[in-house]
C-alpha cells in the first residue's frame, strides 16, 4: 500500500520531494528556520511594524522625532536622524530583502537551468551559441554592471534583480549543462529515445527532476548574492529610496554618522539581519552539497 500512496501523490508533493531539502543536516535546518522567521516577518510586516517606515515622525511636542534612543518615546529601536522608526524599517526591510532575494534567485536558477538544459541536451550549434553567450556574461564584471544599471535606470530594487538575471545565470548554466551531459550519456535516456519518447518528455521526465536540486542550490546562493549586492549598491548611493531595504538603512546610518553617534541600535541590526539571511542561504547550500556530492564528506 505505501507504494500506491507515493504513486498517487500530486505534483506539488513530487516537486517538493525532488527538491530533496536537506532536512537531516542541522545547519541546513537552522538555515531553513531563519528563512521561515524572515518570511513570516515579511508577510506580516504591516501588523508587526508600528509605523510606516518612511513616515516622518514627531514627538508629543511636535518636534521631529530624530535620533531617539531605543525605548525613548516608545520607539523600540529608536529613530533615524530624519525621524523614521528604525524597528519598522528593519521589519519592512525583510520584505525587500526577500523580494529581491527570491526573485533574483528564481531568475538566476530559471534562466541558468533552462540555458544549461537546452545547451546540454541539444548540443551542436545551440550549445555553441549559448555557451559563447555564457562566456560573454563571464566577461562582464558584475558589481560595476549593477552600478551602471542602477545609476542610469530609475532607482529601484529591481535593478539588482535585472542585473542578476542578465549576468549571473552563467554559473548555473555551466554547471547544469555539464550535469545534463552526464545524464544524457546514461543508458535510460537512450532507452527512452529508442522507445520513441519525445525530447520534451525526456527532458521533463528524466532530466529535469535530476537537475532540480542543483538549480535550487544555485538559487539559494543567489539569494545571498542579491541581498549583498543590493546592500552594496545602496551604500554607494544608487539604491531605491522608496523601498526601505537593510542596505538602504545602513547607507542612511553611515551617512548620518551613526558610528560617531554610537547609534549601534541603528547600524548593527540591519547588518545582523543581512548576515543571518545570507548565511542561512549558505547553510542550506552546504546541506545540499552534502546530499548531492556526498564524497565531499562532513
Amino acid at each position: 500500500m505505501p507504494e500506491l500512496a507515493i504513486a498517487r501523490s500530486g505534483l506539488p508533493t513530487r516537486l517538493f520531494r525532488s527538491l530533496r531539502l536537506p532536512l537531516n543536516d542541522r545547519f541546513a535546518v537552522f538555515g531553513l528556520l531563519i528563512y521561515l522567521v524572515f518570511v513570516v516577518t515579511a508577510l506580516f510586516a504591516d501588523q508587526i511594524a508600528p509605523y510606516d517606515p518612511t513616515e516622518i515622525l514627531y514627538t508629543e511636542d511636535y518636534d521631529l522625532a530624530a535620533d531617539m534612543r531605543p525605548g525613548q518615546e516608545g520607539f523600540i529601536l529608536g529613530t533615524t536622524s530624519l525621524g523614521r522608526d528604525v524597528f519598522s524599517q528593519l521589519v519592512y526591510g525583510t520584505r525587500s530583502a526577500l523580494l529581491i532575494g527570491v526573485t533574483a534567485a528564481f531568475m538566476v536558477a530559471l534562466i541558468g537551468s533552462l540555458v544549461g538544459l537546452v545547451s546540454g541536451y541539444f548540443g551542436g550549434w545551440t550549445d555553441a551559441v549559448l555557451m559563447r553567450l555564457a562566456d560573454i556574461a563571464f566577461g562582464i564584471p558584475f558589481l560595476p554592471f549593477v552600478i551602471v544599471l542602477a545609476a542610469f535606470l530609475e532607482p529601484s530594487i529591481w535593478n539588482v534583480v535585472l542585473a542578476m538575471a542578465l549576468v549571473l545565470w552563467r554559473d548555473t548554466a555551466r554547471v547544469i549543462r555539464s550535469q545534463v551531459l552526464t545524464l544524457r550519456s546514461r543508458g535510460y535516456v537512450d532507452a527512452a529515445r529508442v522507445a520513441g519518447s519525445s525530447d520534451a518528455k525526456i527532458i521533463l521526465r528524466h532530466i529535469a527532476p535530476n537537475i532540480l536540486p542543483l538549480s535550487f542550490l544555485y538559487g539559494s546562493i543567489a539569494i545571498g548574492w542579491a541581498i549583498l549586492t543590493e546592500a552594496s549598491i545602496s551604500f554607494l548611493g544608487f539604491g531605491d529610496p522608496e523601498s526601505i531595504s537593510w542596505g538602504y538603512m545602513l547607507q542612511d546610518a553611515f551617512a548620518s554618522q551613526a558610528l560617531a553617534k554610537q547609534a549601534y541600535y541603528w547600524f548593527v541590526p540591519p547588518g545582523l539581519c543581512i548576515i543571518l539571511v545570507v548565511s542561512a542561504g549558505f547553510f542550506i547550500t552546504r546541506g545540499y552539497e552534502n546530499i548531492l556530492f556526498p564524497k565531499l564528506g562532513r
Binding site: S81, L82, S234, G237, G239, P241, Q251, D252, A255, S256
Partner: peptide
C-alpha cells in the same frame, strides 16, 4: 534627489 544623496532636500 534621493535621500541618500541629499537628505535635507528629500526631507
Amino acid at each position: 534627489r534621493p535621500q541618500a544623496a541629499q537628505p535635507q532636500e528629500f526631507q
